[in-house]
């Protein structure tokens, strides 16, 4: 990973501190998508002060276990104070470990079970197209999530319906390397009829460029990422850290690693 964007670093720091405070979090998978989330919310039409704006574009986090990353990103883009997210996972909190669209401004779909968000995104994109709307739909799926057959059903239908207002961001972070990896996603997605680009998933500029799309096919962006990117400990032990939250000493270690990576 090259020099980390200042906003991406802030979001990662929030993720670490909130995970430590709450005792919850899928930190490595959140860290693999931070730059994608930054690029998306810098690029799409949205208004944090008016989350229900009728002409907004839609972003759906289909890989719903990265919810903490989404919350921290929405907070840093002004949807709500980041302090609110410290109630993450607590009884009575509106910030669950998987997001509830009725509780969190900016969350367009309640996700969690894998392989659902992309199908709903497909329906939204089709609906906007049939309505003659210019609104666009962006959906982020994981490579692990892509073990689910529904992902591929949806991709087939998206291509069949020429939904060029749909962009699929594949977080290609190697999470399935120990069981069912999505080998050569470029070839697979191209064969399914999508317009595919492959980018460094930790380069906001490159991702933003890939989000600009204007041909007749739905776009797929293969974002090559690293689980836990930004903290050497998380990268090294990504499976051990899959669902862990850091204790006080570990938090200091991880923050130190994050600061070092951001230099």
């Amino acid at each position: 990973m090259n020099c980390m964007d200042a906003l991406a670093k802030q979001i990662r720091e929030s993720i670490l501190r909130i995970s430590h405070h709450s005792g919850h979090g899928h930190i490595p998978t959140c860290f693999s998508v931070v730059e994608m989330l930054c690029a998306v919310y810098k690029s799409i039409r949205h208004d944090p002060k008016n989350p229900g704006w009728k002409e907004r574009d839609i972003f759906i986090l289909s890989k719903g276990h990265a919810a903490l990353g989404l919350y921290c990103t929405l907070a840093h883009f002004g949807y709500f104070p980041v302090e609110d997210v410290y109630a993450f996972g607590a009884f009575g909190s509106r910030f669950g470990c998987h997001a509830d669209r009725f509780k969190v401004p900016g969350v367009e779909l309640s996700t969690g079970s894998l392989g659902h968000g992309i199908g709903v995104a497909l329906g939204m994109a089709l609906g906007f197209k049939l309505s003659g709307s210019e609104r666009r739909v962006y959906v982020m799926v994981g490579d692990g999530e892509s073990n689910e057959g529904t992902v591929w059903e949806s991709l087939m239908v998206a291509a069949n319906r020429s939904l060029n207002n749909l962009t699929v961001l594949l977080d290609n972070n190697g999470s399935q390397s120990r069981c069912l990896p999505i080998d050569d996603p470029q070839a697979k997605l191209s064969a399914f009829g999508l317009d595919v680009v492959s980018v460094d998933g930790h380069n906001i500029t490159a991702i933003s460029r890939a989000l600009e799309h204007s041909n007749s096919k739905p776009r797929a962006i293969i974002a090559n990422t690293t689980k836990g990117a930004g903290c050497a400990t998380l990268v090294r032990d990504m499976f051990a850290w899959h669902r862990r939250s850091p204790n006080a000493a570990e938090l200091e270690t991880l923050l130190g690693e994050l600061n070092a990576a951001a230099v």
Partner: peptide, 28 residues
């Protein structure tokens, strides 16, 4: 025309799509 969409033999996606089309203002 265009208001009957024969999507294919993919029931899971049919339901998910319908949710999305409802979000987009249709009565699927």
């Amino acid at each position: 025309p265009g208001r009957l969409l024969n999507i294919g033999i993919c029931e899971n996606t049919l339901i998910s799509m319908a949710a999305g089309m409802s979000a987009a203002g249709f009565h699927p």
